[in-house]
Design a binder for these strands. Sequence first.
DNA 1: CATGAATGAGGTTTCATTCAT
DNA 2: TATGAATGAAACCTCATTCAT
Lengths: 212, 212, 212, 212
Amino acid sequence: MASGTLAAFEPRKTPVQARATVTVQAISEATIQVLLRHGAESLTTTRVAHRAGVSVGTLYQYFPNKQSLLFSVLERHLEKVTEEVEDACRRARYKPLTEMIKEVVEAFVDAKTVRADISAALYKIAPDVGGIALVKREAQRMRKGIFRLLESAPECKASPDEFAIQIMLAAMSGAMRLVLEGGDSTTAMRKLREQLVLLCQAYMAATTNQHA
Amino acid sequence: MASGTLAAFEPRKTPVQARATVTVQAISEATIQVLLRHGAESLTTTRVAHRAGVSVGTLYQYFPNKQSLLFSVLERHLEKVTEEVEDACRRARYKPLTEMIKEVVEAFVDAKTVRADISAALYKIAPDVGGIALVKREAQRMRKGIFRLLESAPECKASPDEFAIQIMLAAMSGAMRLVLEGGDSTTAMRKLREQLVLLCQAYMAATTNQHA
Amino acid sequence: MASGTLAAFEPRKTPVQARATVTVQAISEATIQVLLRHGAESLTTTRVAHRAGVSVGTLYQYFPNKQSLLFSVLERHLEKVTEEVEDACRRARYKPLTEMIKEVVEAFVDAKTVRADISAALYKIAPDVGGIALVKREAQRMRKGIFRLLESAPECKASPDEFAIQIMLAAMSGAMRLVLEGGDSTTAMRKLREQLVLLCQAYMAATTNQHA
Amino acid sequence: MASGTLAAFEPRKTPVQARATVTVQAISEATIQVLLRHGAESLTTTRVAHRAGVSVGTLYQYFPNKQSLLFSVLERHLEKVTEEVEDACRRARYKPLTEMIKEVVEAFVDAKTVRADISAALYKIAPDVGGIALVKREAQRMRKGIFRLLESAPECKASPDEFAIQIMLAAMSGAMRLVLEGGDSTTAMRKLREQLVLLCQAYMAATTNQHA
DNA sequence: CATGAATGAGGTTTCATTCAT
DNA sequence: TATGAATGAAACCTCATTCAT
């Protein structure tokens, strides 16, 4: 299994009837509930189904196996974060570079923080579920968004450094992870947000100068 | 399990006899072998014992349970990294700030990179084994080392910012994680090393200025 | 379940409307398709229904349960074989004994061989479906046909030996089964046909003489 | 699964301690007990383990899966039959051809009849368990034994017809199957035995003449 | 009549851990 | 002390069958 392929975690069948859509929703939400209340190691398909108010059989009608269930939850979460960042990229166009970075970083941190508990819980299941491939995919999307954003920066003379963006993203999300997993206080979180902005701004400024 | 307590993962008895030490060594190494060859989900105590050339019973003589076994392996790994960083801190005393950061970051990256495969594999087991508490402990040790190092910096007027150090560490190790888990190429690794130095230097310079 | 009762496997309702007949046909054929393509252990009612282009519910409208479905397919197959043999019996009347046997055996072998794959596949499901009772019933019909045929033989002085016919049938169909299940080549099949004729002729000659 | 490979059903580990041998024996016998008392479709690994007086875990220590368990039972049974036939082949050397056939056929029928219930029950599980490959293997062994036997016959001018032997075996074992599955009476069995001798004698005589 | 979502008992298999030898 | 046979709870997943729409 390990990392590798992104596919093979797709849901089993797309619900056509209204009832089915509700069911799938309920299962996804129940998954998160169980994850938060019982922890990843006590998350069993039976328990999820029970909490969702359906039978195991129903669960397996929509998700071919436990992994795909967790994968779908993780995917939805990561995509929401990506979208927030992309939105920020759109909003920040043509602003000064420092402002750009600020918007992007804050969008990312905020997206991860709204449901800090969920973010933290999902870190645990990610590796067992093909999460690294997923993370790569989302990271690429963000990278692209940020790349286009930086192109629009007034200060930008040459094309932005793709690798630097990657590093910045890695540092940012890596730091978030550590802090979220650590279960740090809300105040620590606030300080982190502000420092991460500073860190990214400093780094981007540094790489830009270096290349000049 | 969650995060939380650091204790309760200590080995069952400290080997006093020479033979016992050898056995414990063999088991620890076997654990890593199995982890690398079969993956975390196929790591069973029986398999580890078999590869170590002992019986399961013997394994349980030295480790009260599977977690403690994995914990000990993870601990050894993290401690080695911490020690490398602490060494770097000692070596870098009284050098200019930029140089300091460079030494520390490179020590960290190199320590993680010597056995990139092991580093990557251990990420997977960490959460199931009390790894976050361990990570916190080691992070604190590094923080302390770096704090003392920065105090000795010629540029340092006031006391160094503890929180900034924490952020720097988080960014650095978080980025490493992403890259190691991603299984990136050696060349990417080299570029990462150099960029991470830049990033940390830029950030530390920025926070210092900000406070001034 | 075991063997035992022949009944209780009858379809649920005899289709009166033309559309219904078509549906039942489609389901029966789908059953065979699935059996051949996926094997007996992967034959699920849902899959059969899907291949037949109807819903499971519809399938259960015409067959009270999975067994009855398989039973009906098996029944149709066995009856066709029986009919071919009975036809041969009618055709062979008043011919010399050797000729009679030849006609009957070849009719049987040919009937089984036209769709060798189906014959082979059905062997697997037979025991789970009340097949032995069915086989007995069909065997009895053939026995009767052959009995009447032999009565018409010029060589026949006394009444033919019922038990000998049974043995002959058992040997013949048993050998066929082994070969069909073995998935033997078409050439092996041809040789089998010819040898089976010889075998039955020899046996019938022997019993007749013995009784004389 | 289907037919095909003979391997991949081998037991998981050969018991080294005396206790283990007893356990394996108990499990095998329990398998047969359950097969006879509850039928193939109600034979669960848990039930077998329970009847054997061990836990499921123990069962799976010696048999990698349910199939291998059934396979081993079937194998033991078929091998015993083969051995009886081979013994008969040795005993019948240099006797007249008719006598030879008689000995072999009776040995086969008797071997199958001693535990008619077991023989019948095993027919049902054979196809799900790689039985056809096994049957082929055993058939070949018998064929070889009979071939060598026939070579020693005084009447034997040329080399015996391999294919004819195969047909004879198929007819004989096929007929046995039908009768055993039919659950026929002991008297029917006795008559079958005698007729099968006659049948095989007649057939072998016929083929021999034909070739001359 | 047809549909297909829902059911849930129950089967197979794993593996951390113990303890008699 | 070392061994490895035995344990058994518990997880995942299937699929025949029903019934509301």
